[in-house]
Simulated assay, not measured.
Amino acid sequence: MRKLIISTGILFTCLTACQNPQQQSTETDNTETIASIPAPSLITYQILGTIPHDTQSFTEGFLIHGKDLYEGTGLEKMTKLIKTDTTSGKSQVLNDAFDDKIFGEGITILKDKLYQLTYKNNLIYVYDLANLKKPIATHNWPKEGWGATNDGTSLIFGDGSSKIYFVDPQSMQVSKELIVKDNTGEVDRINELEYIDGFIFANRWGTEFIYKIDPNSGNIVGKISFEGIIQQYDKNFIADADNVLNGIAYDLGQQVLFITGKNWPLTFKIKLNQ
């Protein structure tokens, strides 16, 4: 009976392939496309220093604007917008008056407006940067909210999959989708985003890696490992499934990368060797 089932399965597969030559060709083409992507190069770095980070901040969004570091935190009843001085590390809470059911996610600043995603609330808040206490607009978003950044024209959002969305800031409609992939295939759990010198940098949730992504193809062209970085500076830090790397901010003027994680005690100042 087992031989009969296997033979029948083979016959069915052959008939299906013969009847659907186009599908068979498409699968082959996809394999060839993935195989043609070069393996991402390893990007090294130097640690320039650290500043304090609040261990009660469940970091979701992270960015530099002017001389300040803006942070959006998550979790229900704990969502905040925070501003931190990049020299002293002194922080100021700009907004913590969120509904208890709101779970804040990625943030980005475009043309004096701050955009804040929410995790599963399907909302995007828009603020005047001069006053972050109350949104000036609220938009519906049909997907989960994860990372957020922009390229100076389009908002760029992630939803925790391998997809990245380019969104028109006026209509809030998706204008382009990217599939993030490397030489092994699609890369999912794309989380915090930062647009740096024409590339999208993103961490993969649950890992200590940041990827450099070509915004035209979605291909990962570089990879940065921050494995064990927090333990080098804080021997008492307890790593778990929640306290993971999840903050990427870039100071263009100083060419310094700031990274942190959820509930980490430190934010690191990094100089990339690229």
Rank of each mutant, 00 (worst) to 15 (best):
G160Y: 04
Q254N: 11
L132N: 00
D214F: 01
M78V: 13
I190N: 05
A148M: 07
W141N: 11
W146E: 01
S36Q: 12
Y211L: 15
F201H: 07
K111Q: 13
D96T: 10
I156L: 06
T267S: 08
L110A: 03
I220S: 00
F209V: 14
K212Q: 14
A137N: 07
G206S: 07
I64R: 01
T260K: 06
G218P: 00
S91W: 06
G152I: 02
Y233D: 11
I210P: 01
Q92K: 10
S162L: 08
N20I: 06
Q231I: 14
F157D: 07
F258T: 04
K134N: 05
Q19F: 14
Y45D: 01
E71W: 01
I37N: 09
Y127V: 08
I224G: 03
F209C: 12
N183G: 11
S7F: 15
K120G: 05
E32N: 15
V180P: 08
M78W: 13
E192M: 12
D159Y: 04
N219P: 06
G72M: 09
Y119K: 00
E60S: 04
I10Q: 00
L11F: 11
G158W: 02
V174I: 15
K223F: 06
T149H: 02
W264Y: 09
D168M: 07
E27R: 15
L123M: 14
L42I: 15
K113Q: 10
T207M: 11
I43F: 01
L11E: 10
Y45F: 08
N216E: 14
I47P: 00
T59S: 09
K181T: 14
Q92A: 10
T79K: 00
Q274H: 15
P215R: 03
Q23A: 13
G247P: 02
L42A: 13
E32M: 15
A17W: 05
P265C: 07
N131E: 05
D168R: 02
I229L: 06
G49L: 07
A39Q: 11
G72Y: 09
Q170A: 10
D234Y: 06
Y45E: 01
T138D: 07
F209G: 03
P38A: 13
V93G: 06
P40S: 08
N203H: 08
K269D: 08
M1C: 14
D112S: 09
T55A: 04
E105W: 07
L123K: 15
W264G: 02
C14W: 10
I248R: 04
I230T: 10
A249T: 06
Y119F: 12
G247E: 02
D197G: 06
L63W: 00
I270P: 00
